[in-house]
């Protein structure tokens, strides 16, 4: 028997690289597509399309490639209009959160009873509240704290979730079960209820709301992350590392976590919008940044009594919350849809 191993170039093998099928190329920028085509040109045989696409997505390599492709697609010229709107809004929100306090036309905290409850006008685009403060200025100033706090909550819960889920994954089965059972039990309480209790006890401040929300939300996140890790752990490359003799910790650090983080990030991006709404609800119930804070949820609560006479005081902050929540929700959804081919057409 002669060995053929010395001339790998002669292999007439099918290419594994994703070929730019009609759907996929939609997500690619033309430049990237051309580059890809040049790599693939010599391989692509007919009839392997469907198999290869499924196969590509099933492997975490495909997942990773999918994310970068998805992100590129989000910014690309051929991304769906809704996704592009969501991106623009999210970027605008981030910009406002950063420069809001500097572009606010009035002092957001200075009470001027003379100007109380003025309707929207050229001077006050969104009117004034009961203390005569400019609603637009307060919205712009409050954007930073509102978004930052929501993102902080999500980042913290995600970090805790990944750490606890990893510990569970490394532990003996009994410990794993106990950890997950505790999460289940904690999840039986609505986050709203749990966070309300904790935040109230910790005293009225934005910090205590963040802490309360993290305590209320981590069990759910941990459960999700554990599920993601479990899926990755059952993949063939993790098993092949296992039979090579890699330790449990090594498996987790070098194989499982790197290939799970994409899904974790997507999960986190989807949780931001929930965090914004939950935080606003807590502020509305009276736990949150104390007055005269320009936190959006608190603004809705402050304006509530005047809704019959001055609709603008409560409507604009509520609208801001809604838009932010929807934009972040759409963004997370867009990334998720790109990751999961079965959702592509839905």
């Amino acid at each position: 028997m002669t060995s053929l191993t010395r001339n790998p170039g002669a292999e007439p093998e099918p290419a594994l690289e994703p070929e730019p099928g009609p759907e996929r190329s939609r997500l690619l920028e033309p430049a990237a597509e051309a580059e890809r085509e040049s790599i693939d040109a010599e391989f692509v045989p007919a009839g392997t399309r469907g198999y290869r696409r499924v196969n590509e997505w099933l492997t975490p390599a495909g997942l990773g490639a999918g994310i970068s492709r998805g992100l590129r697609g989000l910014f690309g010229r051929r991304a769906p209009i809704v996704d592009r709107i969501a991106i623009v809004i999210v970027l605008a929100l981030v910009v406002v959160a950063i420069i809001g306090p500097f572009i606010a036309p009035y002092d957001p905290y200075l009470a001027q009873p003379v100007d109380a409850l003025l309707p929207p006008s050229a001077a006050h685009w969104m009117g004034t509240d009961d203390a005569g403060r400019d609603v637009l200025s307060r919205l712009l100033t409050g954007a930073g704290t509102t978004l930052l706090a929501a993102i902080a909550v999500v980042v913290l819960t995600t970090v805790i979730g990944v750490v606890v889920a990893s510990i569970a994954a490394l532990s003996p089965r009994a410990v794993d079960t106990v950890i997950m059972r505790v999460c289940d039990i904690a999840m039986a309480l609505p986050a709203m209820v749990l966070a309300l209790g904790i935040a109230a006890a910790l005293g009225p401040s934005l910090g205590s709301v963040v802490v309360a929300m993290v305590i209320a939300m981590w069990p759910g996140t941990t459960r999700l992350v554990r599920g993601i890790l479990r899926v990755t752990m059952s993949s063939a490359y993790v098993e092949s590392a296992r039979v090579t003799g890699v330790s449990k910790a090594g498996l987790l650090a070098r194989h499982v976590l790197p290939n799970s983080m994409d899904s974790v990030y997507v999960q986190a991006s989807m949780e931001i919008s929930g965090a914004i709404v939950l935080m606003a609800g807590l502020a509305y119930l009276g736990v949150g940044a104390p007055p005269p804070s320009a936190d959006w949820g608190a603004m809705v609560a402050q304006g509530r009594e005047y809704i019959t006479t001055a609709w603008w005081v409560t409507t604009f902050p509520g609208l801001a919350i809604t838009i932010a929540a929807i934009a972040f929700g759409l963004l997370g959804d867009a990334i998720r849809v790109r990751l999961d081919p079965s959702l592509r057409r839905r």
């Binding site: 609800g281 809704i307 409560t314 509520g318 929807i326 929700g329």
Partner: peptide, 21 residues
Amino acid sequence: VLSGGVPVFWLAILLQWLFAS
């Protein structure tokens, strides 16, 4: 998308204002 993103309490206030008041 809209109904999923709108804060419940704000929607409640708006409904109350529009359909009740």
